[in-house]
Amino acid sequence: MRTPQGDPAADDAELVGRVKTGDRSAYRELLRRHGPGIHRYAERLVRDPAEAEDVVQETFLRLWLRAKDYDPVARVTTWLFRITHNLAIDRLRKRGRSAFTEDPDMEPGPISVNPPALLEGKQRAEALTAALDRLPPRQASALSLVHLHGMSGAEAAAVLEVSEEALESLLSRGRRALKAQLAGAFANEAKATP
């Protein structure tokens, strides 16, 4: 039975099927489930809060108007993130940023990280965001999809339209670069641990 607040028990694909028929409660349930993750991912890609909001709005507008395009072979999460990814890349291209033409040799230098006492909660997340922002975009996207959004390698590869092997390479290089950037913080945390 449908409820006015959506249907938390319904799976995503079923909700998309209902969106096709103009069911607003199904749309809102999908927004509740995926909105925060989509927003975070859009911010990671475009690195501009206002533009990220526009990308999220376009993504959900597409969900509302073009739900028929959803192919149930893929998970709804993968489909939505892929829309977001493509919209964000289009915007970056228009902006003239060579966002996804990654230089494989580019290794960002370490960032200065505050002492561990300050690296609690939000600040720790901000330090991570700053470190991710310094990575080549494809590495940052791969790490973000797998670690921050909980996608499997296959799903993240589908969003980025690369092979799973290529995704593993992006993840490995991204993790190595992040470790190098956060090395100071790691050392400080190790010292602070009794």
Binding site: Y27, P36, H39, R40, R124, L143, H147, L148, E189
Partner: peptide, 26 residues
């Protein structure tokens, strides 16, 4: 150690104004 850092960056919501806009979209 890096996993713990990455876990701290998980999604935690979106601006209320954006959420309102998206909810009203239909």
């Amino acid at each position: 150690e890096l996993d713990a850092w990455l876990d701290s960056g998980r999604a935690d919501g979106m601006p209320a104004s954006l959420l309102e806009r998206l909810e009203a979209l239909p």
